[in-house]
């Protein structure tokens, strides 16, 4: 059988990024999907930033001390909290996707999502408190 051909949509050229964020009001699915992509991209960017920051060690103690001073600024600490949010959301939603993909919780995936997000929220609050108090 001949493979199905996709047809060009002259009225609506493909915009994949737009498709990612085509959230449907109160529906959960695409919100979770879009946030997963955003946090995934964010974490990838962070990985390279992190490697860049670590490379300061090669520039001697002064460079590292300057960075530590910056790292204690409240705005920087806020970035830490955003990072923890990204890790928690991406990781916990990933657990949902993996479980459902293995046939676990297929019918109750929405509940599974909210339970995992509840756990994530608790961990986020505790982490934020630790970030700003330690």
């Amino acid at each position: 059988m001949e493979k199905a051909k996709r047809l060009d949509d002259k009225a609506r050229p493909k915009r994949p990024l737009q498709a990612w964020f085509d959230v449907r009001q109160d529906r959960l699915g695409t919100w979770a999907f879009a946030l997963n992509r955003l946090t995934g991209i964010g974490l990838t960017v962070y990985l390279f930033l992190h490697l860049g920051v670590l490379s300061l060690l090669a520039q001697g103690p002064e460079a590292w001390d300057d960075f530590l001073e910056l790292a204690h600024h409240p705005l920087y600490l806020m970035l830490d909290v955003i990072l923890i949010f990204g890790i928690l959301f991406h990781g916990l939603n990933g657990i949902r996707v993996a479980l459902v993909g293995m046939g676990i919780g297929v019918r109750s995936q929405r509940t599974l999502f909210w339970v995992l997000m509840g756990i994530g929220l608790v961990l986020l609050v505790v982490s934020a408190w630790l970030v700003f108090t330690i």
């Binding site: 493979k3 199905a4 051909k5 996709r6 047809l7 949509d9 002259k10 009225a11 498709a19």
Partner: peptide, 18 residues
């Protein structure tokens, strides 16, 4: 969405059935 528009509210179902 995700199916090409033929006219106004009508999309081609060719990719779908294909």
């Amino acid at each position: 969405s995700n199916l090409p528009v033929i006219s106004d509210l009508v999309v081609s179902m060719v990719p779908f059935y294909g």
